[in-house]
Structure formats: C-alpha cells, structure tokens
Design a protein around this nucleic acid. Sequence first.
RNA 1: GGAGGCGUGGCCGAGUGGUUUAAGGCGCACGCCUGGAAAGCGUGUUGGGGGCAACCCCUCGGAGGUUCGAAUCCUCUCGCCUCCGCCA
Length: 419
Amino acid sequence: MLDRRFILENQDLIRSNIARREMSVDFDRFVALEDQRRALQKKIEDVRAASNAIAKNRDMSVDEKRAQGTALREEETKLNAEIAPIEAEAQQIYLTIPNLTYEGSPKGGEDASAEIDFGKAPKPEFAFQPKDHIELMENLGMVNLSAAAKVAGSGFYFLTGAGALLEMALVRYGLDMAMAEGFTPVITPDLARDSLMQGAGFVPRGNESNTYRIEDTDLNLIATSEITLVGMTADEIVDTSKLPIKLAGMSHCFRSERAHGSLTRGIYRVHQFTKTEMVIVCLPEEAEAHHMKMREIEQRVFDGLEIPYRVLEIATGDLGASAYRKFDLEAWMPGRSGGSWGEITSTSNCTDFQARRLNIRYRDAAGKPQFAYTLNGTALSVCRAMIALVENHQQADGSIRIPAALRPYMGGMEFIRPK
RNA sequence: GGAGGCGUGGCCGAGUGGUUUAAGGCGCACGCCUGGAAAGCGUGUUGGGGGCAACCCCUCGGAGGUUCGAAUCCUCUCGCCUCCGCCA
C-alpha cells in the first residue's frame, strides 16, 4: 500500500495512476471517508487527553475523578462506535489502491506490453510436424495426467521417470544460477497465514481468491515462495548492513484457478507446481539495479537452456497492484498449433508498496526507520520451463535433446529417449 | 494431545493498579578528552500518528474487557521454552 498521507496530498496523481492501470477504485469515497475519520480521530484524541489529565491529577479526589472520568469514557465509547465503520470502509478501499507506476511502462492493457529483447536461441525450424509437450512427455513416460486426475483431479500431474529427474535438474540448475549472483537458497514452508497472504498481496479469501485455504485454520497453501520469503522479514527493522537480502526460495506453489482453452492444456496451468523464486529486500536507491539484474539472471537461465524467448515490458493495465514495474519472459512454445509465446518468468519491482503492508524497514543514515524496497523474480518455474524445453528440443523420433548446460544435472544424459 | 513457565524498545533486562514521564545495561549518534584512537566522562536514542509550534494521542506479542486510572487484573488468541504422551 501507499502512504495514507501521501495519497491524500497527491490525489490527482493517485487518480491518474488508477486510470492508467485501468482499474476501478472508489477513490472519491476514500477521500471523503478519510476526512471524516481524521476529524473523528481528533475528537477522540481530545477526549483521551482530557481523561488522561484527570487520571493523573493528584489534587483531585477519587470521587471527583470517578464522576468526570466516567462521563468522558462514555463519550469516547460513543465516538469509537462512530469511527469504526468509517475506518473499516476506508481500509477496504485503501487496500485496493495500487502502487505507483513506472513512467516508461507502455500504457494500455495486456496487448500493449512491449517486446524489448529476445533470447539468444532462434526459434527452432522443424522438418516435421512438432508435437506438443503432452504428447511428447506421455510418449516418453515423463508425465501421467490421467492417473493424476484420478488421484487429485484435473490440474494435477505425475512426473515420472525422466520427467521426475528433469524437475530436479531444472530446480538445481536455476538455483545455481541464482546462487552465482549471491542469492541464498531457502526451503520455505508451503503454508502461510492469512495475514501474510494479504500482506504479500494475495487475497486469501473471497471470490477473487486464487489460493487454497486450509479449513478450520488461518493457513493457506502458498501461491509462490515470494509470500514466505518476504514474510521472513515482516515486522522487522532490518540491520541496514544486512541489506540487500537476496533469497532464492524453492517451494511448491498452489493455485486454484481453473485452466481453460487449448493454450492451458497439459501442465501449462496447473494447481501445483515447483518454482524457485528470487526475492530481494533492499535500499530504495538500489532497487532499479537489482531489478535489471534479476531480469538478466532470468535471461541467462533460458539462454543456457537454449530456449527462444522474448522479454516484455509489461503495460500499465496488466500490472499487479504491488508492482511498480514488471518484466515477463515468454518462451516460444512450438507445440501449440503454429507455435506461440507462453509466459515463463516474471520479475517485479514493488518499491515500498509491499514493505509498507508487511512493515519491513531499515534505518537511514539519520537513524530513522524507512520502508525497504522489495523485488521478486522467477528463477525457474518448473512446468513452464519443462514445456518450453521439451517442445523446442524435440527431435524427429520423438526424443528430447538435453541442452549442454543441463546435462550435468541429468547425470550426463544427452537425450531423453523412449524405453 | 496433556501439564507448567515465559513474551517489555535495535538487543539484554527491571518493573504485580497511580511522579513509569518504562529503571539499569549493551549498541548507536553527537560532544568533551586525545597527535589520533581506545578507555573515561557528558548528552541524546522505542516505534507510529496529529500539530507551524508549544504540545497532544497511541504503542510493553495480538485482540477484547474491568477501572477515574492497566506493562501490571480478567477473557480469548498467537508465539517461544521445559516435562510427559504420540510419531517419520
């Protein structure tokens, strides 16, 4: 979230920013509620001051104190009842006010995102009709979707044989890339509290929720380890000498959104997948450089896998509420009819928006606590990487070529072949 | 799962209803001292909100409650520790 005071002092900016992001927020209502809230708050504070003065007064008899104090307390109770609903409604709107937006981000919706770079690998040219990842992987005994449907329903999968090995290889390969840039590997809890889900910017309940909640608890299956990694420093004033904090979290990610349409077939949109996510907590002035660095790491990961991709600078209308600026990598997926781009990574600069919600601070040169900046980026998301890998490196005989950079992680294997 | 204990500022720690305006220490900042430093001495230092300011309000894990008045009493809740039970 943004600073309340900043919002009220920059109403035009906030309004145009909401418009730029193509969002609908009842901002006028928020401003009106805040005016009311602040007026009432002032009254409450005055009443408090009066009753504190009485309680501390040593010259007044207890009977006198009791008489005057009781009256003031009743007034305070009344005012509190008045302010509560105003506060609640204002808070609800407050949580929907999005982060500011990078000036250079293209304006518009999803289609307006700008292609700004491409990977080193060219799109593959096949002398045969390329297959999609489902057919390839099923033929090679790498995946079993029907058995998973029986066990857990649509949206789940078994990775088997070389498929299982490939997941582990990809995880370790991606992790090593992040570690080479100073990220600390982290195994995180796969569950997190409601409060943390909300703080990290994921709605744990309600119609828009894309997360799973554990019944009779305040726990949720995490949608990304970003949630738990930023949660590690929540409510802390981090020793400034410890910044930047650079973590690479490996976890299962759980998302309840339903797949639909041919583009989401197979293991493209699933309810559970494995992902290594980079998270950085840093000083404001360093955030931009870290963001560029994470994008570079993501590109290096996929260049190493010899997978063709494009880099998108995400348009304002397609930014999540927390993101100030965001880049996606989209891999070429030739198994889709005619081939098309599919999202494989995403890296966002959340500025201090997420840190304010989570109360992550550091001390500036003057010793004053300030909100840190947080950033996140996908090191490697297994299912998506796997789709891109098998579809781009498929051979005429249905085998899959393992790119050289991944072979050490696959026990030296050069091809995945049918048994 | 059962029994007991404990959560106080960046850190340690005193504090069982009213000068607590949260003692004391560490750390940190500034000053004195010094050729420079260390030590020593002095001053400042929880965090958040409001106000031009004086100053005011909130903040002792969290949420409620009792009271003229709560770190202190009550209820619920979260976390940590010890012992027992169960368990890969």
